[in-house]
Design a protein around this nucleic acid. Sequence first.
DNA 1: CGGGCCAAGTTGGCCAGCCAACTTTCGGCG
DNA 2: CGCCGAAAGTTGGCTGGCCAACTTGGCCCG
Lengths: 255, 255
Amino acid sequence: MPADPDRATGALYRTVAADLREAITTGRYGEAGRLPAEGALAERYGVSRGTVRQALALLRADGLVTSRRGTRRVVLGTARVQSFSELLSFTHWARSMGEEPGGRLESLVRRPADAAECELLRLEPGSEVYVTLRLRTLSGTPVMVERTVYPPRVGEIVAQLPADAVSHTEPLREHGILFTDADHTIDVVAANTEDARLLGCRRGSPLLREKRRTTDPTGTPVEWSQDRYLPGTVAFSIHNSLASSALSRHARDGD
Amino acid sequence: MPADPDRATGALYRTVAADLREAITTGRYGEAGRLPAEGALAERYGVSRGTVRQALALLRADGLVTSRRGTRRVVLGTARVQSFSELLSFTHWARSMGEEPGGRLESLVRRPADAAECELLRLEPGSEVYVTLRLRTLSGTPVMVERTVYPPRVGEIVAQLPADAVSHTEPLREHGILFTDADHTIDVVAANTEDARLLGCRRGSPLLREKRRTTDPTGTPVEWSQDRYLPGTVAFSIHNSLASSALSRHARDGD
DNA sequence: CGGGCCAAGTTGGCCAGCCAACTTTCGGCG
DNA sequence: CGCCGAAAGTTGGCTGGCCAACTTGGCCCG
């Protein structure tokens, strides 16, 4: 697997972006160095300036370079940024870090969706949903409890997976269920009795919670999940810039 | 104040984006409705298709619409997304939500930077830094402890602000210190004695921690901050999509 | 020596056009 | 009636060009 989000497709600007990203992260332009001008890059890669600008927009969004009118782009950092798929899939993420992910299905039930679930998954009132509870591990040690609600179309596939399936998103992709957009909310929550039992912590001890709603390319919700991480195992990292930002801080409005 | 990130500048595509955003959030195209074709929008606004595409890229980055080859864009959600400035400045954020922000400076010291701080703020070893400790409140109740390290250029200005200054970023902006790029890391931490005293919680109780490193347009670090929030007061919200993502999940590598 | 002005370099923004890839629709055909 | 293929509609990608806004550095002048 290429593990390079840019190189995957045949688009020219992604190839250029991948090449520049590699050059930057290996320090070819220095820690706070300046990139060549857009025109020079266009000539080097044999593409138009517009294509170079598309490539640079990707790097800017990742926080790798600045971009300011009148002066050349400056390298902001050489940190490696995970790709989208690594964020969506615990399995994919863990593997990309060299850790061995594991997952044990604790329960899977089919039941009528409540009002909130209908709203989130955009289902008719009274529709059924599939609810899974999974304990996720890294190299054998429990780190996260995952409670996921699937709409019927997706749940039917999940229900047929073996209980010890490490990844759920990969088999889903093979069935044509794609994950392309996600909204995440991150906060702190106290462990309930079930969390405590599964994660081996005390009831009431703090957990990092990620709520996630995922949609496919058509905008149809395919997943609604609540993940609860043991403190000290993971942190979430975001870059944003004036140019474009997708992160916001919310006042709590309940669960 | 316009409170609209798009409308601020004179760029055409931002005007178009602002108009479309407003139309979407007020439900003009429905909850999962389809947007007009790019060409139709171009004609409506009297701009080229390229400009419309720039506008739509902004909305896509905010998670408002999908975008897929072959079919019209679909409205993903009508949620209001905060702007970048609301994320960077506690004061600005609080005000945008109708809450009254407050801040009390607990201490401000000047001292030599340690190795980690030199690295983060890109300073010469042995440089001095300004360190502030502030208690931030919403409508009078404490919600966050903010520990910020400033490089000399910025700290000198901060040091001259009155102790009861609500906002630090606004006076800094007036002095020509701009905040344009930030990297955030979010995790959970236990309250230390000082946290507990200021926030009125028990020592060891969980806090939501945001570590933030901010740079100006030239890529020069201007701030390194650790904010610790009382649980239940704020949550962080992120949108990402396959097209472009700036969020990642990290394994913890210490502080 | 310092300050201000000017020119070169660079990115932001916008336009017009072209083709490819993909989705949806619709009509014909078995 | 259902399936399949063609056609229309739509977005993705790329080119080439133009001008404006801005930064930088050097030159000139006081």
